[in-house]
Design a protein around this nucleic acid. Structure first.
Lengths: 206, 206
DNA sequence: TGAATTTACCTATGTCGATAGGGAATGTCC
DNA sequence: GGACATTCCCTATCGACATAGGTAAATTCA
């Protein structure tokens, strides 16, 4: 359900072809709401059928076409209503915490590998979000620039502020996960120092 | 796919009926991997068909029955293999950050309500996980006690340590979300102080 | 003893999402 | 001009999940 609002968020700035929309999606809104193109196109068609967006065929080259979508009044109202509605929280399904809770069933080596991989995963995320923050600070992000160009000057600071705030949140999240996994590595060290290498296979321990 | 490993994690401790399993699931593993009973029962049947668990019908009262499941050797091997395999990270779909990125389209009042609701949501989670940590410290959690009873003494500290560590991670996560939302409230205050009340309806600002 | 609750388990329906493709037209480069 | 890349868009298949129920038997409680 939230995919449509993610798409509306991006389309409100101005009309875009399906392809440009999904390209820009991946580089902006897609950082907080992932969707592959195979999901975006059918969703756009659905939204069109429901009157939230309108698509117009445009010529491309001699015989090609593309479809350019814009948000309708109904679409704008739906977006505003969503912004005011209570958020729907997904139920937790956290593979890392699931595994961490049962690491006594593993070995120190496998546990360390798990934490190292977790750190690597979230260091990748951290680097990405820090890069985005730099681009925001430099106003060097094409999607944000496009958005600011379509925004009256009094609103620009606010637009930038909320975008910045969001990425700061992603940075903090990534840092939290890295810290947690580092503490996990320390825990494995401590347990191994106390007990020696353990092998957790078998339901009742080694 | 991870539901089966969550179920195996719990079942490795000892055989359980389907009903007891889903009850205990909700109070333990379900904190990191949610699944309703309507999902658990079919999954157990599937796992049985694949040889990961075995179920035995037992009499219950005069005419009733229940099915008690235990992990097979193949199931144990599958669990161990999963513990060693690279974790599969779900793609991000974060409704709160999605909305936060576009709060300039909202009003200060609605933005504050959003952050307050977010704080309330995560304060609920925080209270729950802190409660679990207290129960772990007091060894007052029936599932953990059952698990420790089935665990050789040298392994008990380790079992408790990883469980504690996992809930500490959940606590930190909750705190991070609350802090973020508090900073969001401060941001709204600051923007309102600078610009006065804004109304973000309309794609190009008020 | 009968009503209410719990134990025990299940199905149906639909949505959302993953993944592995695919085709056609246009544009770029050697 | 042909090979390759990009633009533009799409489908099929399947698994995971949400939700709204449902039935039957046993147990509990007033």
């Amino acid at each position: 359900m939230s995919l449509r609002f993610a798409l509306l968020a991006l389309l409100r700035v101005g009309p875009l072809s399906g392809y440009d929309l999904q390209k820009q999606f991946a580089l902006s809104v897609g950082h907080v709401w992932h969707a592959p193109d195979s999901q975006i196109y059918p969703e756009l068609r659905k939204m069109e059928a429901e009157g939230l967006v309108e698509g117009e065929e445009q010529a491309r080259g001699q015989r090609g076409t593309r479809r350019v979508y814009h948000v309708t009044d109904a679409g704008e109202r739906a977006f505003q209503e969503w912004m005011r509605s209570p958020l729907e929280y997904a139920r937790v399904r956290d593979p890392a915490h699931l595994r961490a809770a049962y690491l006594e069933a593993s070995t120190p080596a496998a546990a360390r590998e798990f934490f190292r991989a977790h750190i690597a995963q979230w260091e990748g995320e951290l680097a990405q979000w820090e890069g985005e923050l730099k681009r925001i600070a430099a106003l060097d992000n094409p999607m944000l620039a496009r958005r600011l160009a379509a925004t009256p000057p009094p609103d620009r600071e606010r637009t930038v502020a909320f975008k910045r705030f969001t990425y700061e949140g992603l940075v903090e999240r990534a840092r939290g996960e890295i810290d947690w996994a580092r503490r996990g590595l320390a825990l494995v060290d401590g347990l191994e120092a106390a007990d020696g290498e353990w092998a957790g296979s078998g339901a009742n321990g080694a």
